[in-house]
Design a protein around this nucleic acid. Structure first.
Length: 159
DNA sequence: GCCAACGTTGGC
DNA sequence: GCCAACGTTGGC
């Protein structure tokens, strides 16, 4: 099992939205970056877990955890001319953009803000904290995963 | 709202 | 295949 961090603007899609979705499950659509796509297509597996990170939000930070439901399949919004994620260059017989589903797992007792993450030396080197990083999906090292859970006042269940 | 970082596009 | 222009991301 691997750990990830997935960014979302909560005005667009929040952890609340996911929790209220049918089956507490949703497509992670709209990713239009090749490296993030490759993570979803090639590396993310059912049972992997990901931090749900709020970007463009005050405060930015991590609100909870979701489960990855794989395998990846074509993102339908790329073929929808009314979608803001429409990609006229993508063809149905050779889709450019893939996605995975995510399922709500749990909310942190208290969110871990970006500010708090920045001030914790145990998180030095975490990819999402690197200046200028814009990648919306990044792998998370297990040690960082556990440090952030501790900061959230949350002790993960065994396993 | 500003703007630095950085990915993508397209002219050549 | 270079690289300037452009658009987007996202912290601040």
């Amino acid at each position: 099992m691997q750990f990830w961090l997935m960014k979302s603007e909560p005005d667009v899609f929040s952890l609340d939205d996911l929790e209220k979705a049918p089956g507490q499950r949703s497509m992670w659509d709209g990713v239009r970056n090749y490296q993030a796509r490759n993570y979803m297509r090639d590396q993310m597996k059912t049972g992997d877990r990901a931090f749900f990170y709020y970007s463009n939000h005050d405060p930015a930070g991590i609100w909870g955890v979701v489960e990855i439901i794989g395998p990846a399949y074509p993102d339908p919004t790329q073929f929808d001319p009314t979608s803001k994620y429409f990609d006229p260059k993508s063809r149905e017989d050779n889709p450019r953009w893939m996605l995975i589903d995510v399922r709500f797992l749990y909310r942190f007792p208290q969110p871990v803000t970006r500010d708090a993450m920045k001030n914790n030396p145990q998180l030095d080197g975490m990819l999402v904290m690197r200046p200028g990083n814009r990648l919306s999906i990044t792998p998370v090292e297990p040690k960082h995963w556990y440090v952030i859970h501790k900061m959230a006042g949350f002790t993960p269940e065994r396993k």
